[in-house]
């Protein structure tokens, strides 16, 4: 929960999104979104299904480039002051800085060790000491080290669902991004695994800017510093989590968080 102290310093901005429109073919998915995501804090995106949360988060590392006919038609997204949709931006470099964890955990069908080393190998890092060190560090950061340290070389698909998701988080941490995008990372996890992931995110925010999509109001409320409420492709409300939940400025937001629709 955020500290409601009004005198705290205004946080630095990690991602500046200014008035973006996004289309899938002829369907408008995002309508005039403007949003500043603060650095080293957790920002959660809430809203009913199909409201554009996932589309929005996938714009931030240009994952939507993979989808045929999907395009940003207006507005800019700046990370560290650079427009990431500029022609000169290399998507590979962008994705190294903006990591992503997906809703469905998707470990590769290889060993736990190789899963973590994957991102480093993509960057042609071959030195074993560096990789070993990165594997241990990121597994420790993802609170998975103690559970898997004796079977690093067994297949990652043998892990439980919660472990697989934490492995995916560890894998994303291994390449040391500055921003972590998480698309409903806990949707397939039980409450215990969810609690572990949340604890992990809380510890990570010291070094990372985290954007998390969630369907759980409680999760958004207890975890995030800022919350954005999306509805029908529009950003209805954005602000401090405590304010948004205690005293929503928009009747739609209030209806949604109190469970009257969505």
């Amino acid at each position: 929960m955020t500290d409601p102290n009004p005198n705290r310093p205004i946080p630095e901005t990690a991602v500046e999104v200014s008035s973006i429109d996004f289309y899938y073919g002829k369907t408008k998915a995002l309508d005039d979104i403007t949003l500043d995501i603060p650095k080293n804090q957790i920002t959660s995106l809430i809203g009913p299904s199909g409201c554009g949360k996932t589309t929005f988060i996938r714009c931030l590392n240009r994952m939507n480039d993979l989808i045929e006919g999907a395009q940003l038609t207006r507005g800019t997204i700046r990370i560290s002051g650079v427009d990431i949709y500029d022609k000169r931006v290399d998507v590979i470099e962008l994705r190294k800085k903006v990591g992503m964890v997906f809703q469905k955990s998707n470990p590769f069908p290889m060993s736990i060790y190789e899963n973590i080393a994957y991102g480093l190998r993509m960057q042609s890092i071959r030195k074993k000491t560096i990789i070993d060190e990165a594997v241990e560090r990121s597994l420790r950061n993802a609170a998975l080290w103690n559970e898997v340290k004796d079977r690093l070389h067994s297949n990652a698909l043998g892990l439980s669902g919660g472990q697989q998701q934490r492995l995916c988080i560890a894998r994303a941490l291994a390449i040391e991004p500055t921003i972590m995008l998480m698309d409903e990372p806990c949707s397939a996890l039980d409450p215990i695994a969810t609690a572990r992931v949340e604890e992990l995110l809380f510890n990570l925010k010291e070094n990372y800017t985290i954007v998390i999509v969630t369907h759980s109001m409680q999760q958004a409320a207890r975890l995030s510093d800022h919350t954005a409420f999306f509805y029908l492709g529009k950003l209805e409300e954005f602000g401090d989590t405590s304010k948004l939940f205690m005293n929503p400025g928009n009747p739609q937001t209030e209806a949604y968080i109190s469970g009257r629709f969505g």
Partner: peptide
């Protein structure tokens, strides 16, 4: 091949060919 593999690899900063060679083809 599940799309999740491709996305997972690309999100880790993999290039297209490396993704195909390391994840898609073996599967």
């Amino acid at each position: 091949v599940p799309q999740g593999f491709r996305e997972g690899s690309l999100a880790l900063g993999g290039s297209k060919w490396k993704t195909i060679r390391r994840v898609v083809l073996p599967y």
